[in-house]
Write a protein that binds this DNA or RNA. Structure first.
Length: 307
DNA sequence: AAGACGAAAGTGGTTGA
DNA sequence: TCAACAACTTTCGTCTT
């Protein structure tokens, strides 16, 4: 399907291929590697009428990041005017005026919001699939009048946050907050409100989804990273993860893993990239040691150092 | 001197009466 | 609607390397 094995930006092999969108995304740094990948899937032909819905492909793809999904008709494109005379010309102006009127607040709001959405999304280097998803969420929110009483920007941020989690490339609220300039709690609030109102299922985010990104910004190697994921799996079985902030757990697992693999990072360093405090890391770290009997391994490392 | 550790008090959100 | 509660943060003093 695709031949790229490594992310050109961060050398990560943790790539995610989204065939529907024709793109490959680096789960670590969020870089979209191949945007216009050719669809190599078999080209279907219609043999009878029943197939036409499922197999026919025609026209430009729908895109929610165009405010009218690329399907609108503009009245009054440049050349048109010269072809018309007299009554026709009047009709033309009437129609254009009419269209102007029905460009309601909703549509103008959407245009503005989608611009903002693209800005934030490119700042965070989010994959295109997430951008589309969040645009869809935002559009739905507008249609249900959920933006009323809230700032447009905060709803955009909330939609992005939701889309990130659904696509398993979660960003923290802090990151969203920094990119959008909206307060963290405000984003959280609108996020909860919008997802609840739209009935979007929010699967609790998996700590392992954060590991790759944190590890890459800490410059930890692949073994350390995969060991951290193993730790997380064991932690999940011991029910250490429920109710806790996923970022804190991911950070602690990485911290332990780095320790064991001789790539020690300070608690502060790990805490900073994960957006939690050292204290939280310490607490999770302590729990991990107790539950998973990792003390032995830590002691081994210490002994090896002395020798 | 820097990092790790832990206690205590404060914050914002959830839950259950 | 309010109080109890859990998770997390901030701050700060102490111990370890």
């Amino acid at each position: 399907m695709h031949f790229i094995k490594k992310c050109p930006e961060c050398e990560s092999t943790n790539l995610f291929s989204n065939k529907d969108r024709g793109e490959v995304v680096c789960k670590d740094c969020g870089l979209v590697i191949e945007d216009k990948m050719i669809d190599f899937e078999q080209e279907w032909r219609e043999f009878d009428g029943d197939d036409e819905q499922s197999k026919r492909r025609a026209g430009a793809s729908l895109s929610y990041t165009q405010f009218d999904q690329g399907l609108g008709t503009e009245i009054g494109q440049k050349g048109d005017l010269y072809k018309l005379e007299g009554k026709e010309k009047n009709k033309f102006f009437r129609l254009r005026k009419w269209q102007y009127r029905i460009s309601t607040a909703i549509e103008r709001n959407l245009k503005l919001a989608l611009a903002e959405l693209k800005r934030v999304s490119s700042y965070l280097k989010l994959p295109r699939s997430v951008e589309e998803e969040s645009a869809r969420i935002y559009t739905l929110a507008v249609q249900r009048g959920l933006v009323r009483g809230r700032s447009m920007e905060s709803v955009v941020a909330g939609a992005l946050y939701a889309a990130c989690r659904r696509h398993e490339v979660p960003r923290t609220l802090d990151e969203l907050s920094e990119a959008s300039g909206i307060e963290k709690k405000e984003i959280g609030r609108t996020y909860r409100f919008v997802t609840r109102e739209l009935g979007i299922t929010i699967l609790p985010s998996n700590p392992a989804d954060y590991v790759a990104r944190f590890a890459s910004s800490l410059r930890l190697n692949a073994e350390t990273q995969s060991y951290a994921v193993q730790i997380l799996e064991r932690a999940q079985k011991s029910e250490l993860t429920s109710g806790r902030g996923p970022t804190g757990i991911a950070a602690a697992a990485l911290y332990v893993s780095a320790l064991i693999h001789g790539e020690k990072r300070t608690q502060r360093e790990v805490a900073d990239v994960a957006g939690v405090t050292e204290v939280t890391i310490r607490n999770r770290y302590k729990e991990l040691l107790e539950e998973l009997k990792l003390e032995k391994e830590i002691k081994k490392i210490k002994k090896m150092k002395k020798e």
